[in-house]
Design a protein around this nucleic acid. Sequence first.
DNA 1: AGAACATTTCGTTGTTCGACGAAGCTTCGT
DNA 2: ACGAAGCTTCGTCGAACAACGAAATGTTCT
Lengths: 237, 237
Amino acid sequence: MKTSASSAFAPVGRYQLAEIGALLADPSRAAILLALMDGSARPAGELGLLAGIAPATASAHLRKLCDGGLLGVVAQGRHRYYRLAGEDVAHLVETLAQTRAQRSRIVASAADPAMMRVRTCYQHLAGRLGVALFERLRSQRGLLLTADAVRLSRRGHKLLIDSGLAVADDAIEKLPGRSCLDWTERRFHLAGPLGTYLTRRLFDTGWLERRKHTRALGISPHGHAGLVALGLDWNQF
Amino acid sequence: MKTSASSAFAPVGRYQLAEIGALLADPSRAAILLALMDGSARPAGELGLLAGIAPATASAHLRKLCDGGLLGVVAQGRHRYYRLAGEDVAHLVETLAQTRAQRSRIVASAADPAMMRVRTCYQHLAGRLGVALFERLRSQRGLLLTADAVRLSRRGHKLLIDSGLAVADDAIEKLPGRSCLDWTERRFHLAGPLGTYLTRRLFDTGWLERRKHTRALGISPHGHAGLVALGLDWNQF
DNA sequence: AGAACATTTCGTTGTTCGACGAAGCTTCGT
DNA sequence: ACGAAGCTTCGTCGAACAACGAAATGTTCT
């Protein structure tokens, strides 16, 4: 059977995601998974005792966890030892636990190397560059036709043409944009078709260069000059 | 009954884990989370359309996701833009997706620093040391009284006494052991009361030392000599 | 072989929860 | 100020599911 991994994205659908979620949704099953987090293999009765449920109930839960691929079972005599199916399952449970634990904390910067400040958020601009560019266009009245569906005004279009970033094509002024909250910068930037267009132009003009083996980007000298010409305070990067 | 988890661990309980699981368990909610995985902030109506549900239903789901801390909301005029609550949530969804995708694949080694090769798997022996010790005892006929309830034979007990690891007490030969599949090594090692006893002895004799701030362990020179005397090929570690 | 044990399957019960339409609330545009 | 649009709350219906006891299956010990 060929894997559906296909290409760039869409590796998993809603149903596959929900299926795993449903397995984790029950307190008894969660207790079982936590008990097995140390890598041990335990029989059904013991796990039922740990979870505070009858053996019959534990058996039903274990069957579901096995069918779902989260657990594996080793039959040995009159016992059937259940264990986590693999490291990835342990990693999943650990991530799940940490997500809840961090809820109250403020995410303090964390690993955010300078290279990651400029990146592509899939098809639109993100990171500090995206935020800066969006705020630059928005701060000066008349560059963006705001409202919900953001569009580039004629004056804004001309500014970008002069800087070399955009080309002279009236269709560009019809491209709809969308404001998108980037959760790294916690500020809005430009997304939608307009954002996509500008991102592509940043690469086509050579202002930005992709670095190999990373999603991070680099700014060329040429791009640096252009951004300064646009009025962006580039020293902050 | 006081919490059985002693103290060392148990950062998260069953209910907290199940709460997040329940949030992920619904296909509609999963579709919403996937749609927000790119970091975008979208209004309720759009998300409902994407998930194929009525606005009222989407609103209910979004409320749950917000209460659960997975989403955040930004009110802007008559729109309310929902976004992922933070990077940790994005990481969680990604891990969840990968867990299902990796089901067929073989887990290729992955980051496994040398220090982690020797570790305590809570109360029993795990990692390479555990596997090696178990196989050493099992490979030579007569050291372990096998079957399901593994027990130390008189000859096996004597060997351990001579090496200094075990003490001369007939009760030790009655300790039941259990074979436990370690998913890092993918081989069986010794668990159960017998495994617990041997682990405790490894520390009491100073063969193993806990390193601070880690679950990893170190082998003392004294322990090194003892393990070699037991016939373990210690160079492999 | 028969007793004891671990585990599973079956059938039942009660609760939980997703889905929708209708109604109420707030904000935007003219 | 008025109507329209987006979103939320309320009430109801129907399906899914966890829990248990009892009975069936398979394994070990005497």
